[in-house]
């Protein structure tokens, strides 16, 4: 079959909403786009363990401690599922990790903000996981089979993440005056970064057009962002917290909220490595990777010695 024919078959499959599987022919750019997107997603899960992981040892009750540990552990699992999905595209986990540690691959800019107080753990679960879930629910129908299947599993696990965060915020908002202030402060700091999680506005998003064409993404950045604002407003309202946006108001004609513009200059700077925690995050990952090297070597040496594999 010539490339034209293959390409036509591929397009026809997408048109029929059939999933693309690892051994199927796919355009080179589709493969590249997927590797970039899936690995970026995987790295985000792994780096995302850090800001929340900071608070596991300080969680204020045994229940919160267990929940947070289980939650952060889940994020590690998500990274693992996604690395595996990327590996079906003929790239190894070793290469993927190398790309993260050398700065060749990106991860979600949100994890370069610091988690300063316990309320941040509430805000992250509620807003960051909330925004992530919105994206992930869409990706359950993404065109690449292994990615879609990883997403189905992830979405199932995510179901408690947002709730535990919102529960933390609810308890704080109904708690002492200091606790309520802590909750509002965390919301103020995490709100705009959460809106940025959906990516730049559609007209400035270089990859959106292809992602939609290939049915990797099924909704645009702006569509998802709008949905998120609409769904979050009442959640904040009901627990007596205020979204920190003076331009926020209901727009009857579009059946949704109008809202202000995130600081995109800050967004691009964080992506460029200038966020408050970029260096700390990558150095934490690098340290874990380097300090674990002798362990992985030992496991490998033992396996070689014992020929345990298929002995």
């Amino acid at each position: 079959m010539d490339t034209n024919q293959l390409e036509q078959n591929f397009d026809a499959k997408l048109a029929r909403n059939e999933s693309i599987e690892p051994k199927d022919w796919m355009p080179d750019n589709y493969r590249k786009h997927l590797i970039r997107q899936i690995s970026q997603h995987a790295h985000s899960e792994i780096v995302g363990m850090l800001p929340e992981g900071n608070w596991i040892t300080r969680a204020p009750s045994l229940r919160r401690k267990m929940v947070l540990l289980a939650k952060v552990q889940d994020e590690g699992g998500h990274g693992l599922y996604l690395y595996s999905a990327a590996e079906t595209l003929n790239i190894s986990r070793e290469e993927l990790i190398d790309q993260l540690l050398t700065g060749k691959a990106k991860y979600s800019s949100i994890f370069n903000y610091p988690s300063l107080t316990w309320a941040d753990i509430g805000a992250i679960g509620w807003l960051v996981d909330g925004a992530a879930i919105m994206n992930q629910v869409m990706l359950q129908r993404t065109s690449y089979g292994p990615y879609a299947r990883a997403m189905v599993r992830i979405c199932k696990e995510e179901s408690f993440h947002q709730r535990q965060g919102y529960e933390i915020m609810t308890v704080l908002a109904k708690g002492t005056a200091e606790q309520k202030a802590m909750a509002q402060d965390a919301l103020n700091r995490w709100w705009w970064p959460s809106l940025m999680m959906f990516g730049p506005p559609d007209e400035k998003s270089p990859n959106t057009a292809n992602a939609i064409k290939w049915k990797i993404k099924r909704e645009t950045n702006d569509e998802l962002r709008q949905k998120f604002v609409n769904q979050t407003f009442p959640q904040a309202d009901i627990i007596g917290l205020k979204l920190p946006d003076p331009d926020l108001k209901w727009n009857e004609s579009k059946g949704g909220f109008d809202f202000g513009t995130p600081n995109w200059e800050e967004f691009y700077n964080i992506i460029a490595g200038n966020g408050p925690c970029n260096k700390a995050r990558i150095s934490a990952r690098t340290k874990a990777h380097n300090e674990g090297a002798w362990v992985r070597e030992a496991a490998n040496a033992y396996a070689e010695k014992k020929k345990a594999v298929l002995a």
Partner: peptide, 14 residues
């Protein structure tokens, strides 16, 4: 739990 996010490889973290 202090290891969470810092283990030698992902599976061991979990």
């Amino acid at each position: 739990s202090e290891w969470c996010g810092h283990a030698p490889y992902l599976e061991e973290d979990i």
